[in-house]
Structure formats: structure tokens, C-alpha cells
Amino acid sequence: MTASASLEQAQPDRRPLKRLGLRVEPYLYSAPAVIIVATVMLVPLVIGMTYAFRDIRLLNPFSGGFVGLDNFRRLAADGDFYLALKNTVFWTAASVFFQFTLGLILALLLNRPFAGRGIAQALVFLPWAVPSFLSGLDWAWLFNPVVGPIPHWLTALGVMSQPENILSDPDLAMWGPIVANVWWGIPFFAITMLAALQSIPADIYEAASIDGAGPFERFRAITLPFLAPTIAIAVLLRTVWIANFADLIVVMTNGGPADRTQIVASYIFTTAFRRLDFGYASAIAMVLLVLLMIYSLLIVILRQTLLARA
């Protein structure tokens, strides 16, 4: 622009407004998105953070004052919170493990051509489209010995002594939402992995076969390294997402029995929605946010050290 400056002085740009218009154009196009996201997400986020330091209970008209770190002190002594934390780890780890493993197997199955693949693909991906509340209800019914077949099957197999609802058994209840979550989430991993698989050039496999690699060796030496970055990103993002995903638990067990299925996200929801204790809910949410940030940071550091070693 410096070179043109002198020239433009000699012969001024006849359309300065037009030039300005061009500069402003992208901002105009993005403005609605920015405004709505900022006002409906960022502003409440900041306000919610201040709630953590206040006593805000909807049922108590005298609440609202600042209480410093009281909410956090209460949290530190809250046994239910630690239980929820433990449950969150189990819920997340089990869900991600099975979603990923089964999703990868499904992707590998779908990655070779066969008659009817298009239809098979549409059918196996269908659970993704089922609204989460509905899959929660559906599985709750399947586990219900009155209308569902699963307890009867388990009894017939000898796993259960008599048909009972695992959702009311404190030791097994968490498996209910996990099974629903796995069923519902396999398509996500399968679709992501399938896309990555299909981007591996076929001639690499051909070259490997010519070099004498068998199917297992080809999977180990080509497929896995190619998939690794996709797997890493999908697992990382999905872990955070599932840790925050309370719908199925709220629908299927509401955290019960005896808080044995309560995860941190559903605990926040229950505290806000049933007890209407917004201050305490926001304090838990802050802790969850910090924990998730630490988790992401750890992953990034781990990645860096692994890369540095490689």
C-alpha cells in the first residue's frame, strides 16, 4: 500500500467509500453469528462464574449475596461430589472404550465393498439420529423386566438368578446408561474412522502386498499409523463430550439408585434444576471446567513428549 499512497495523492481514489465497503464486508456477514454467540453463550458463561461466589437459591428470596469461597468449601466436604467424580471417570472410560472399539470394527467391516453396503451403512448409522432422550427411554424400557426382553435373556443365560431391572441395582445400574450410550455413539466413531480409512490411498496396500505383507501386518503397518491422528483427536474430543453428557443419565436413572449413577454433569443439572441452588451448581461447574482443562492440557503435554521422543 505504501507504493500506491503517493500515486493516490496525485490522483485520488474516486471510490473511497467503495473501498471501505470491501473492508467491512466480512464483518457484516459474520456479525449476526458473533452477536448471538457472544450474548447467549459468552455473557452467561461469565455471569455463571460469578454465581460460584454467591449464594443464589431460587427458593430463598433473601439469597444473592457474595459468600466468597463458601460454595467451594462446601464442595470440598461433599461426599456426593466425590462419588460423582468417580462415576464420571467410570462412565466416560467405559463409554469411550466400547464406542471406539466397536466403532472401529464397524468401520473396518464397512470399508470393503459388498452388495448392499449403502443400505447396511444407513441402517447401522441410524441410532445416531435417534434423539438422546428417546434412546435413554428406549433402553430403560428394554432393561425393564415388565416390557423389556433383556432381563429375561440374562436370566435364561444364567447371568441373573431372576429377571430384575439392572437400573435399580446399585452395583450394576451404571451399565444401563453406558449400554445406551455405546449403542447411540458407535456411529460417531464408525463414521469418523470410515472417512479416515477411505482417505488411505489403495496403492499403499498394493505395494505392501507386493512386498509380502499379510492382512494382519498391513493393518499394523499401514492402517493403524494412518488412523492414529484421527483416533487421537476423536477420542480426545469425545472423552470431553461424554464426560459432559448428562441426558441419558437424567432420563434413565436420574442419578439413582443411591447416587450410584450420578456423574458431575448430571449432578450440576440436578442441583440447578431440582434444588434450584444456582450458586452451588455454578461452583461445581467451575471445578468441572478446571478438571477438563487439566485433562486437555495433560493430553497436549503427553502428545508433545511422545512426538519429541519419536
Binding site: 507504493a3 500515486l7 467503495k18
Partner: peptide
Amino acid sequence: TGGEIVIGGKRVND
């Protein structure tokens, strides 16, 4: 950025 482009006798820079 600088200089002039003239097409058919008319400056077209802008």
C-alpha cells in the same frame, strides 16, 4: 498496489 492499468484509454485501477 501501485502504478496504472489503462484499457482502451481508460484508467481501470478502481
